[in-house]
Design a protein around this nucleic acid. Structure first.
Length: 586
RNA sequence: GCGCUUGUAGCUCAGCUGGAUAGAGCAUCGGCCUUCUAAGCCGAGGGUCGCAGGUUCGACUCCUGCCAAGCGUACCA
């Protein structure tokens, strides 16, 4: 429709140009918008306002000329000038109601498009360190990331979802050591657990299971642990030095082979748990990409070599630096430490090089907002590698602050005191969790009230949308009980009977679904879809209360049934895309 | 100090890339169940869009400067 109006306006502009009213080399951007207020018609354009200045005329007069030169079209019933010079279009009612037929014909496919044209997009999200279960902060990234990815697929992009597994590095060593210490406790050794170790209950569970399976294979005398080791914070020392020394001790006492086995055992338990958790949350990945693999297959060396060839590396104070400040970063960054170890950032350079090599047209990283300072250096790295850094899009997700009513809940991983995504899901349900997470713009700091999300009352927006779907189903069941049959053909033939205010409002709302989907996808803003679905549900509920569907008039009845059938289809398509259930009754 | 994000109704948040009278849910108040599910609907009250300038036909939206909150500013990951 927009396209049609655009071409009509373009013809009018061309005629104005040939009449000399407008300059010939003027190529105006024609903007057509949905009217916000139905009294302003269905579509509006600000064309006259924009052209007024170059045409040296006042906008309303210009609008009159444009309208006079506008070619006739069957689907446009009325064109009027309003306000300062807006041109409002009223669309013929029966062309509006055709959306019901289109929705019925396309069914589950309605709204999908090919604007992505098979362009390859990678979306990386969550990527939480596998040092424990996912918590509610990760939940937001998971819900947002998967919604963005699924939306992009829906509009024709070829999407690959990826989780970057940080299975290397110090945190993982601390995890392995924490597990080992709990294991030793399990064996009956007396140990002092480090301040900086992972204290969560799940560590004990893992240790317990390893002990059950392997007996005393990993047991070493407890008194050897702390020999000549720097004091922990609790004893007036430095907790970082203490834990690092403890990790080294674990490696020495166990030997590299056993240490590796233990490390691997812990990692796989946690990773499996994360996978299962996400799967249950409706989030699936094409790729679980291992950081360790980058280290082991020489990718990091390769990446550094390429940076060096570009002249971006230099040595200072025994370390190797990447001159990222030449490329927009605040300062240069270390890639290889004085001790010869590459940094996490070096891994990330290699990782992004790998992403580029895989030929994605667009690389979308979804990160927690605390990583924002990291963006310039990654961009710098991509540029230094000779890539176009505009391929990279970073979307930051703000933290969700969790409340239970008025009470704020703690969120710290190390202490083990945090609400896990699992707990959240079991407390409020997967549907409500997804809905709540995606309901807000990702950059918005979010207050997540568990009490509200859990409530099975009118306070909860999830049910509002689901209820609309269930209500349509209920009407269809009632139809059956009355001994009537739905006649699709009769309904379609009588769509022009849908002239009530509530009906045209619902029709308009339905016709907006494809463009909403498109916008939500291209702008990476799934909350627009949620917003839309709530709006659609409102139109339906209002209609439901204002008019009877199951009327005696066969023509009207079937037209209405087709209308609410189409509504049900859109509610289904939208919720389904967001992996939220659509109950047939509630 | 510098950087990123945020600031809209009592609370939680939208606001369609600069449009017409700034919207929704919750909360408050008042109505609607002998008729398709009241997890619903209708109505009322509630606003200096953080503050001050600027850009223009027109600003919640863009620019500048302040103010406030969160985060970041590692040879941690």
């Amino acid at each position: 429709m927009k396209q049609k109006l655009k071409s009509l306006l373009l013809q009018a502009v061309e005629r104005l140009q040939s009449e000399g009213v407008l300059d010939n080399n003027l190529t105006p951007q024609i903007n057509i918008e949905r009217s916000r207020d139905s009294s302003h018609g269905d579509y509006a354009t600000n064309l006259a306002l924009i052209l007024a200045k170059p045409a040296k005329s006042n906008p309303r007069q210009l609008a009159e000329k444009i309208i006079a030169l506008l070619p006739d079209d069957a689907s446009v019933s009325k064109v009027v000038i309003a306000g300062p010079g807006f041109i409002n279009f009223f669309i013929q009612g029966d062309s509006q109601s055709q959306v019901v037929r289109q929705i019925h014909d396309a069914g589950n496919q309605f709204g999908l498009s090919q604007i992505g044209a098979g362009s390859k997009v990678q979306v990386e999200f969550v990527s939480a360190n596998p040092t424990g279960p996912l918590h509610v902060g990760h939940g937001r990234g998971a819900a947002y990331g998967s919604a963005v990815a699924d939306l992009l697929s829906a509009v024709g992009f070829e999407v690959s979802k990826e989780y970057y597994v940080n299975d290397a590095g110090r945190q993982m060593d601390i995890l392995a050591t924490s597990i080992w210490l709990r294991y030793l406790e399990e064996c009956g050794e007396v140990i002092v657990f480090p301040c900086n170790g992972y204290r969560g209950e799940y560590i004990r569970d893992i240790a317990f299971n390893i002990h059950k399976k392997t007996g005393n294979e990993y047991r070493r005398p407890g008194e050897l642990l702390l020999e000549d080791i720097p004091a922990d914070e609790s004893h007036g020392g430095d907790k970082e030095k203490h834990i690092d020394a403890l990790v080294d001790r674990a490696k020495t006492l166990l030997g590299s082979s056993l240490y590796h086995d233990l490390f691997q055992a812990g990692l796989s338990v946690i990773l499996d748990d994360i996978k299962e958790d996400l799967e249950e949350f409706g989030v699936s990945y094409q790729e679980w990409f291992s950081e360790r693999q980058l280290i082991e297959d020489g990718s990091i060396q390769e990446a550094l070599k390429r940076l060096d060839e570009g002249g971006f590396l230099y040595e200072k104070e025994g370390a190797t630096w990447f001159a990222s400040s030449q490329l927009g970063d605040d300062k240069d960054r270390v890639v290889v430490r004085e001790n010869g170890q590459s940094t996490y950032f070096a891994s990330d350079i290699a990782y992004h090089m790998n992403k580029l090599d895989r030929g994605f047209d667009q690389i979308i990283n979804i990160w927690g907002s605390d990583h924002h300072g990291y963006i310039p250096r990654v961009r710098a790295a991509m540029t230094a590698l000779g890539a176009d850094d505009s391929k990279l899009k970073v979307k930051l997700v703000q933290f969700a602050i969790l409340y239970r009513g008025k009470e704020k809940l703690p969120m710290s991983t190390r202490s083990g005191e945090f609400v896990t995504l699992r707990q959240l899901r079991s407390e409020v349900g997967t549907d409500a969790a997804r809905f709540f997470y995606v309901m807000r713009k990702s950059e918005q700091h979010m207050n997540f009230d568990l009490k509200l999300a859990r409530s099975k009352t009118n306070e909860n927006p999830v049910y509002y949308v689901q209820y609309a779907h269930a209500r349509v189903c209920s009407v269809m069941r009632q139809l059956d009980e009355k001994g009537w049959e739905r006649d699709l053909v009769v309904g379609m033939e009588n769509l022009d009977l849908l002239v009530e205010e509530h009906e045209t409002a619902l029709l308009t709302s339905l016709s907006k679904y494809p463009e909403t989907l498109e916008r939500a996808a291209l702008q990476y803003e799934p909350h627009l879809l949620i917003q839309y679905l709530r709006d659609l549900a409102t139109h339906f509920h209002t209609y439901y209360n204002a008019h009877q569907f199951l009327v005696d008039d066969v023509a009207l009845r079937n037209a209405r049934l087709n209308l609410i059938g189409a509504t049900k289809q859109i509610l289904f398509n939208g919720l389904n895309l967001l992996k939220i259930n659509t109950p047939e009754s509630m």
